[in-house]
């Protein structure tokens, strides 16, 4: 069975959920081989084995994290040439898409980004994307080279399928070009303790209607174990960090449940959340466009509705 390369997304060996999703998808197309770059492989091995990585190609070059994406693209290009995989799957993060872009040019391969589904098809991997702010779905295939597919988080339910995760160290050194963009400083952000926005099963977002006070939004999110998002209006006003922005120029999320609080639902915002499975909104304006999208809506003041709902959720949890 043909190999399918999966680029592992991890922080010092702590494997992110997207990787187990990609391994699950890879098994539909062939035999998953994980590609691990950086440090911490021992910590990652168990997770990779659990979700079906038969092999792991690893390059523990410690300096790799000092440079932006080019080393990963070079390593994958080398593996594509040597292993002739059926496909290469990367996470559709900003980094993943940049790696995919360079890899596509290096290997003369077609590229599909932001896939929300990948299935085996007659002409190779068949992808589904959600485009034009979620108003269309598109099915596409790669017709040249090795299909390179950047897959969005939450595109598959991770399924366990224990495999060997036999590791093979790849002899690899980044080129001079790879050393061209150097990370000179990294300032970690304070951890919120909440799930990561793009991976979360539930997202609660606040907008202009919060008037800058996100406390009821955060309290409701915490009761539900949700991530917190924000509309562009709230971010532009400086009420919440840009990394939490949901929308066209922020994160595109597709959780099981999306709760929009005090968000009118402009196209900019819809582009980031329209594919959520269930959508709920709380807004004072009964004509807000967000209500056209919802499964359930409350016309009311979020400062009254959310605390009441939070109490009810907490009571139900006991």
């Amino acid at each position: 069975m043909a190999e399918v390369l999966v680029l592992v997304d991890h922080a010092d060996g702590a494997v992110r959920k997207t990787t187990s999703e990609l391994l699950t998808i890879a098994r539909r197309l062939g035999e998953p081989s994980a590609v691990f770059v950086g440090t911490g492989f021992e910590a990652a091995k168990e997770a990779l084995a659990k979700f079906g990585a038969a092999k792991v190609y690893r390059a523990e070059a410690p300096e790799v994290t000092q440079y932006l994406v080019v080393p990963q693209a070079e390593l994958l290009a080398k593996l594509v040439e040597e292993k002739s995989p059926a496909a290469v799957l990367v996470p559709a993060s900003t980094e993943g898409k940049e790696i995919a872009a360079r890899l596509a040019v290096k290997t003369g391969s077609g590229l599909i980004t932001d896939a929300v589904d990948v299935q085996a098809g007659d002409g190779g991997a068949k992808t589904t994307q959600s485009v034009f702010a979620g108003s269309y779905t598109v099915e596409a295939t790669v017709t040249h080279g090795t299909p390179i597919i950047a897959v969005k988080p939450n595109s598959a339910t991770p399924e366990e399928a224990p495999a060997a995760a036999a590791d093979e160290v790849v002899d690899f050194a980044p080129s001079d070009l790879a050393r061209g963009a150097t990370v000179t400083d990294t300032q970690p952000k304070a951890a919120s303790g909440r799930p990561e926005l793009t991976e979360a099963a539930i997202v609660v977002s606040g907008g202009r209607g919060t008037a800058g006070d996100f406390s009821p939004v955060e309290a409701f999110a915490d009761a539900l174990g949700a991530a917190v998002g924000a509309s562009r209006a709230a971010v532009d006003a400086g009420w919440y960090p840009h990394s939490s922005q949901v929308g066209q120029t922020g994160k595109q999320v597709s959780p099981q449940l999306y709760v929009a609080c005090g968000i009118s639902g402009a196209i900019q915002h819809r582009a980031g959340m329209q594919t959520s499975k269930t959508i709920v909104a709380v807004n004072k304006d009964n004509e807000a466009p967000i209500f056209e999208l919802v499964d359930f809506g409350v016309v009311g003041d979020l400062f009254k509705v959310l605390p009441q709902a939070t109490s009810a959720v907490e009571a139900a949890k006991g």
Partner: peptide, 8 residues
């Protein structure tokens, strides 16, 4: 093009 939209 190296990828093809089959349907929309």
């Amino acid at each position: 093009a190296w990828s093809k939209v089959d349907a929309f």
